[in-house]
Write a protein that binds this DNA or RNA. Structure first.
Length: 684
RNA sequence: GGCGGGGUAGCUCAGGUGGUUAGAGCGUCGGAUUCAUAACCCGAAGGUCACGGGUUCAACUCCCGUCCCCGCUACCA
């Protein structure tokens, strides 16, 4: 049913990297390495395939970064676009096109896409109130508003999230909001936006995903989609008030752009158009013809966009086909911790290429072997070393080297002719012939780890055969026999040079040069006549070198340094701005005793408590349930901010706030008077 | 709290419409070997398949409950 043979062409996309930082091993293992292996395999199968990627260059974070660095957004994306593009290229990720969303062709494509949907009446138009900076005459995106976090009191919280306590916010919740641009307090003003009514397309999505792709999508992808569909979809805004991005192609909408999640996936289409124009072919069949297979490689954080929103857009547009598969991977950790750009806890591709020149294939191998296909996985440098030294080098490299050295020693590097075959010879050749189909099957099911292990089994087959036949013992009495043995070993080497291609392109090429054989199609990989008798081999050279302990140690030290730098940053949480005595005096803080406490149902963090303040009894809700059980809290002496404006939380009115101390690890502890004062005592 | 994914040998992972001794690679130990980058090859040890119930002639595989990890989501005065 999903046999690749029934498809005329393949359109393969890899998630567009966001151009505000470099690429790290998590991106590679999750998306680019598997996608690259898949594409190289298809190409070797002789398929018509286009491999699409590019930089995602719009959105608010880039404009913020530009402002911080005193640059234009274009300068920021130019820098990262080239850094990313060059690193991919050097690493051997063989995109047919690596485009960018700031390119003209993308602006055109995305605007036209929007117009088509607009003309079809797909969108819902709605007015809402948003913060507006009067001095600069512009609406403020969530990230452009800063203010005091209502939760932790941090004074530089953003409109969408507080970076101090991690709470997600909406701009209206911020206390004392300020515009990041002018520093002024913004005002609420009406603005108009366009929404994609995902709810209307729910039946289509249900049938397409839940019924048609029950069996061929990965469980994590299918499950995530089902979860979204069962929760019920709601309209999603596709426009934003911002001056960086694709302008809305409508009259009177200056200052409005497409929201990035609408804009970015269209980037796949724009990139395809760019490629097609250069090549002089028609791009449309790659996206619109039912006999094209469309596959999106992404990480698990992108599932909803690629399985729900983008397909809805394509469907609503009307002339596109929907993706055939979205093989999303889980996440890769590094030395036991989450990879984090802001904490600099990562192995950056451009740094790896510097530290390990010429070792692209080693990283490709390790990342494929430990790819988080079914669950999160951990990358460690020790594992990197072991896989290089004990697998790539000891099994693959060593087999090739043994064969080459023996052939040079006994036959001056000329391929000997095979004579009469023994059972073992025939068995070995028969086994070898099965590899292209076996590996290919795994690849077509997106089981890259399995496929890689199978490829290595071919090298194992060679090693076993060579050891069993012991040509170094037989050469004196029976040189004719040795000719046959080495001929067979060389055929295995030649097969390896074909079948390792998708996984280890640099190594495959090097091996082909060493053997003096051309690149071959995938299905020729198991043949026993890939290298002809009498053919002169080149000198043997090592395919892989040992990774030494010192190199591993250096990488680990680099990471430890990052961790150290990071910790010292965190410990030094800066003081807040100076406040006035008058402001302080406005706060009425009292000692109180907790009379009763219970967990608020259906929440993880909330505790509902009754306090005796000495003056009254009141209800307070606090987010401390992760640190205190209701039972252990009762009877505790606490300090409460008693004149804080009451607020409803989960339907319960909270009349005040209990003062808590928080350490750098995020642990909470009650603040309480040192002596056991009666309830209602004032704090000043 | 709701939802999704996952918890299988020291490590990284396969597996199964329920059925003889639960698999692989790496690591460890032993043997054999010397063509090879002390590598290859052979063999062994290692697992109450997270935990507790249930269904069954039979469960790691199905059902119920619990715990732990990751993600999405709600919540945090």
């Amino acid at each position: 049913m999903n046999n690749n043979k029934s498809y005329k062409r393949h359109t393969v996309t890899a998630a567009l990297p966001y151009a505000n930082g470099p690429i790290h091993i998590g991106h590679l293992a999750g998306v680019y390495v598997p996608a690259d292996i898949y594409v190289r395999y298809l190409r070797q199968k002789g398929k018509d395939v286009v491999y699409i990627c590019g930089s995602d260059e719009h959105g608010v974070p880039i404009t913020i970064k530009a402002r911080q660095e005193n640059k234009t957004p274009q300068q920021v994306v130019d820098y990262y676009h080239h850094l990313i593009k060059d690193a991919f290229q050097e690493f051997g990720i063989a995109f047919d096109v690596y485009s960018r969303t700031s390119a003209d062709i993308h602006h055109e494509t995305a605007a036209a896409f929007f117009t088509t949907l607009y003309d079809k009446g797909v969108f819902v138009e709605q007015e809402s109130e948003q913060y507006f900076d009067e001095e600069n005459q512009q609406f403020l995106a969530d990230r452009y508003i800063t203010g005091t976090c209502p939760h932790c009191g941090y004074e530089s919280a953003y409109g969408d999230q507080c970076e101090s306590c991690g709470t997600s916010l909406s701009p209206a919740e911020l206390i004392k909001p300020r515009s990041v641009i002018s520093g002024n307090s913004p005002v609420m003003r009406k603005t108009r936006h366009w929404y994609l009514p995902l709810d209307k397309y729910e039946p289509m999505l249900r049938e397409w995903i839940l019924e048609n792709h029950k069996d061929d999508w990965k469980p994590n992808v299918y499950g995530q989609c089902k979860s979204w569909l069962d929760l019920g979809l709601i309209p999603r805004g596709v426009t934003r008030d911002l001056d960086w991005g694709v302008q809305l192609p409508l009259e009177g909408t200056e200052g409005k752009v497409l929201y990035v999640w609408f804009d970015a996936p269209i980037g796949y289409i724009s990139a395809t158009r760019e490629w097609a124009a250069e090549k002089g072919v028609d791009w449309k069949p790659y996206w619109k013809s039912p006999d094209s297979k469309l596959v999106h490689f992404i990480g698990k954080d992108n599932i909803v966009f690629h399985c729900i929103m983008f397909p809805t857009m394509l469907h609503a547009e009307g002339s596109y086909k929907l993706p055939d598969n979205v093989p999303a991977n889980e996440f890769l950790n590094l030395e036991g911790d989450k990879i984090s750009t802001s904490r600099n806890w990562a192995v950056w591709l451009h740094e790896y290429l510097q530290d390990f020149p010429g070792k692209q294939d080693v990283l490709r191998y390790v990342l494929c072997a430990t790819a988080p296909e079914t669950k999160d996985n951990d990358f460690t440098w020790k594992d990197f070393q072991a896989r290089n030294n004990h697998e790539l080098l000891a099994i693959f490299g060593n087999f090739v080297n043994r064969t080459m050295v023996l052939t040079h020693k006994y036959f001056d590097g000329r391929v000997p002719e095979a004579g009469d075959m023994t059972d073992n010879d025939r068995e070995t050749l028969k086994n070898m012939a099965a590899f292209p189909a076996k590996i290919g099957e795994s690849l077509e099911l997106y089981r890259f780890r399995e496929a890689l292990a199978e490829m290595m089994n071919l090298a194992r087959l060679g090693n076993r055969y060579l050891t069993e036949e012991e040509p170094w013992k037989k050469f004196k009495e029976d040189p004719e026999r040795v000719k046959t043995i080495l001929n067979i070993c060389l055929q295995v080497c030649a097969s390896l040079s074909v079948l390792s291609g998708p996984f280890l392109p640099f190594t495959a090429h090097k091996l082909q040069e060493m053997l003096g054989v051309p690149a071959r199609a995938w299905d020729e990989g198991g043949r026993s006549d890939l290298i002809a008798p009498g053919h002169q081999l080149n000198q043997p050279a090592f395919l892989f070198e040992k990774v030494e302990d010192e190199q591993v140690k250096a990488q680990l030290e680099k990471l430890m340094q990052a961790r150290k730098d990071n910790q010292s940053d965190e410990d030094a949480k800066p003081f807040k701005e100076t406040t006035t005595f008058d402001d302080f005096a406005k706060m009425d803080m009292r000692t109180a005793t907790i009379l009763s406490a219970e967990k608020v149902p259906k929440t993880k963090k909330l505790l509902k408590m009754t306090l005796d303040t000495g003056i009254d009894q009141r209800t307070v809700v606090a987010g401390i349930a992760e640190f205190y059980n209701p039972e252990e809290v009762v009877g505790k002496k606490v300090v409460v901010l008693a004149n804080l404006e009451p607020r409803k939380i989960k339907g319960i009115e909270s009349q005040g706030m209990i003062l808590m101390a928080e350490n750098p690890d995020g642990d909470l502890a009650f603040v309480k008077p040192e002596k056991d004062f009666e309830n209602g005592s004032t704090i000043s």
